[in-house]
Design a protein around this nucleic acid. Structure first.
Lengths: 342, 342
DNA sequence: TTGTATGCGTTATCAG
DNA sequence: CTGATAACGCATACAA
């Protein structure tokens, strides 16, 4: 077990100074070809690699990005993560990944842990609890410290920073429009409780579409399910009492679950009831019938988030210009499958 | 935008030395209550937090763990990741997450990137290419440098280090046994090409079960699919030419995909053909019918991997005892769903 | 009880 | 062309 070799050791072995070694390895013009060759050869032999920590300390830049997501098991977040990782990788940044588990406290702990020099910036989707409690002091604090932050998907208007998301309202609107175009009249919305920004926006799109196309708005056709635990009896109850011919769900799990329950009742999908879900994930693809889905293009979202963040990080090095924040809207589109009629 | 405050600044403001501040903040007995109070109050006011980098540099410990997985979109890896994250979090370690994308080169790049001081140890599942090419020099190298490594799921005998996995052979054996107990006679195996350790073991279990229960071994009943791109025509061809009444698949995707294709042909599952898959993931749960699955308990696997690694890391601080490596076998079990008959 | 000096591994500045 | 020195932020052995 050989410890990693350092400049100092090389210097001692070769009987030169540390700075000579340092410069030689950077191929500085100050050093003679001779010594450069000698030093480089030696360094290569011993697999010299500069210590990242020391460099980070010196540069005050870690080349690490903190990514905090509510849950890594959800396909959408995973996909965004992939996008972030991909872009960052290519630009020499590593990802420190944390899971907030939908908890405000864990979100805070993770941020504080990383904010003390471990990362150059954050990419984050708000946890459920954070959105519910509307508490953003931890975000303000890191912003105050001059650490860049990019919010994606689950965002808030209360914080000024870069953001990436889809146009949830429009996406929901288009989903409902598709139902209407297919002649559906009794269109239900199955969503979470209100505190999610995305759910609010999607509900707004749903309402807007009904309004615009002259369909009556029946509040009983909106089912709000608890977010964490799937409530089967509520779903069964809903479909027993309400007469619906189309259902827009704010996520894939809700959609697949409802579709399964409805089919178990012997109702035909898509003939009797059509389904559209958000998040074009693996479940949508392999469902039976396939679930028509609103693709959120998570990978792109991740790439863009990373790009925005790295841009900010590297800009901060330059002149201290006025901070300006952007909100990128990713275009979403509908992936048609068997759960709706073409 | 206020930069983070440092010991030095506190010392200057309070007109004491840096070490006094350092000690006071650690509540050292050397410092008088008075000055301690004063310094602590000041530090609190300015939200002093020690810089992680500096501490890491000093201690030669980062409290970071490098996790390299082939693909984060796969449910199993994600679940293991969750387990690692969970355990590490609780023990004060952060996760630097990298995706090798099934590529040896990316695996190497990622490891080298992190091995230079960014992490205290690695947890890794071998990429497809790494297994295919049987190249492990990069692993030997980091082991040589005294950096602990834990391999999970996709492991190799060629490297001596800690490992966590399930007993794939036994699990496959039990899957086939279940089919046989249900009276199935023509049991197929759908697997990947040979270079995956897990696939080899699962195939061994399959063969062992047939042998042991006196069923003929028909090589034509073993279908090897390319790993990356799903080959539908090969699957269709297989089910047209072979007469089977049960199928064991080495992963969830294969199983779901085959089940769908078979059902599209009008074949009834589980009446005519039963299915069992590996990886009890989200697809298995929401499939129609539900897919009977061999649970690999990824979360536990992750926790154990993290535990082993952190154990090694923190032991290394103690006496330089003989290195001893362990292989933990996680118990797997079958989750029964609609794709097999009870 | 407080402070000085040294080191963790680098890099940059400046002197020789 | 080469080397000494300081600095990044912190901790600690040793003086005072």
């Amino acid at each position: 077990m050989k410890r990693k070799i350092t400049l100092k050791q090389i210097a001692r072995e070769l009987e030169v100074s540390i700075s000579t070694v340092s410069k030689a390895l950077k191929d500085s013009a100050e050093i003679s070809e001779d010594t450069k060759q000698k030093i480089k050869a030696f360094a290569k032999l011993y697999h010299y690699r500069p210590n990242n920590l020391a460099i980070s300390l010196k540069n005050r830049r870690t080349k690490n990005i903190g990514v905090i997501i509510p849950d890594i098991v959800h396909y959408f977040f995973t996909t965004v993560f992939r996008g972030i990782e991909h872009y960052s990788q290519e630009h020499g940044y590593n990802i420190i990944a944390c899971v907030s588990d939908e908890s405000l406290e864990k979100e805070i702990i993770n941020m504080e842990m990383l904010a003390n020099g471990s990362v150059d910036g954050f990419i984050l989707a708000l946890s459920a609890e954070t959105q519910k409690k509307n508490e953003f002091d931890h975000l303000r604090e890191i912003l105050d410290q001059g650490i860049p932050l990019v919010l994606f998907d689950r965002v808030t208007d209360e914080i000024e920073c870069d953001k990436v998301m889809i146009n949830d309202q429009e996406a929901a609107f288009l989903g409902v429009k598709k139902f209407i175009d297919n002649g559906r009249k009794k269109i239900a919305l199955i969503t979470t409780e209100d505190y999610f920004s995305v759910s609010r926006d999607r509900e707004a799109g749903y309402r807007q579409a009904l309004l615009q196309f002259g369909l009556p708005l029946d509040e009983d056709l909106i089912l709000k399910l608890p977010f964490m635990a799937l409530d089967e009896s509520a779903i069964n109850m809903f479909f027993s009492t309400q007469e619906v011919d189309a259902v827009l769900c704010v996520n894939e799990i809700f959609a697949i679950h409802c579709m399964n329950l409805v089919q178990q009742k012997g109702i035909k999908v898509p003939e009797e009831i059509s389904f559209i879900g958000f998040t074009d994930g693996i479940l949508s693809k392999y469902a039976n019938p396939g679930l028509t889905s609103i693709a959120q293009h998570g990978f792109r979202m991740g790439e863009i988030a990373a790009k925005m963040l790295i841009g900010k990080i590297e800009d901060d090095l330059g002149e201290e210009e006025e901070e300006t924040y952007h909100t990128e809207i990713i275009r979403s589109n509908i992936i048609e499958r068997g759960s709706t009629i073409n």
